[in-house]
């Protein structure tokens, strides 16, 4: 489902020199598989997810999603592929504050191939327990509820793969546990793969499949003295 080969990304540092941030020789995730990547802050794991999602263009290497080589595509095609095949859950949720709960989900769907399906958006929000909050704005919801909107938005387009970047980082322990369970459960129901990155051992311990991003990412090792 997801195959990464010789993926490299660097940024220009303050001194003008290029600083390698991601250098992943190989990484794979099978369809429907749920895997957690352990990574400390600054280890390049968010950049890795952005490269997979096509939000950032790689310097070199391949990212293949569901048989399509993302890294060979131009930006418009990457945007289309992201809307069609991927769901993205952010640590800070990244909800659109001027839009209602239902509109946030509908907008997420509207860029995908099926378009904004109001009935399906309602059903997904019902599924995450927010059927009674459709007309609310994000600021009118609790943090936990906002995270559930983000989950609904990521899954509403029936993605093949969900990328979750520290999805419980802004939640307390109880809500973090509930949110994680919800994400995993809904992904399982829809047959979507899940690639989650976190530095929280409590979250990581929930996964059978775990990998240490520091070991995966040669850029981190190269940067070590």
């Amino acid at each position: 489902m997801l195959a990464v080969q010789q993926l490299r990304k660097s940024f220009v540092g303050p001194d003008g020199a290029r600083v390698p941030v991601v250098a992943v020789p190989e990484f794979q995730l099978a369809a429907g598989e749920q895997l957690a990547l352990r990574g400390e802050s600054g280890s390049g794991k968010t950049t890795f997810l952005h490269l997979i999602a096509g939000i950032l263009a790689a310097d070199a290497g391949r990212v293949e999603i569901d048989g399509v080589e993302m890294t060979a595509l131009g930006e418009p095609a990457r945007d289309r592929l992201r809307a069609e095949k991927l769901g993205y859950i952010f640590q800070t949720f990244n909800l659109l504050q001027g839009f209602t709960v239902l509109e946030n989900v509908l907008l997420g769907m509207s860029f995908g191939p099926r378009g904004a399906d109001r009935a399906h958006a309602r059903a997904v929000l019902e599924r995450v327990g927010l059927g009674h909050r459709l007309g609310h704005f994000p600021r009118q919801l609790s943090t936990g509820q906002q995270q559930r909107v983000a989950v609904a938005r990521a899954l509403a387009n029936r993605p093949r793969l969900v990328l979750a970047d520290e999805p419980t980082g802004n939640l307390d322990t109880r809500h973090a546990g509930e949110a994680l369970a919800l994400i995993r459960e809904v992904c399982r129901e829809q047959g979507a793969g899940l690639l989650l990155v976190s530095h929280d051992e409590g979250v990581l311990s929930q996964f059978t499949l775990r990998r240490d991003f520091a070991e995966l990412n040669q850029a981190v090792r190269e940067a070590r003295p």
């Binding site: 999602a53 945007d79 992201r82 809307a83 990244n94 997420g108 938005r153």
Partner: peptide, 16 residues
């Protein structure tokens, strides 16, 4: 700009 970036992350194209 944050809203626009979120839309882009959700799959909106630059031209959108």
């Amino acid at each position: 700009q944050r809203d626009l970036a979120i839309l882009r992350a959700l799959g909106a194209r630059r031209r959108t």
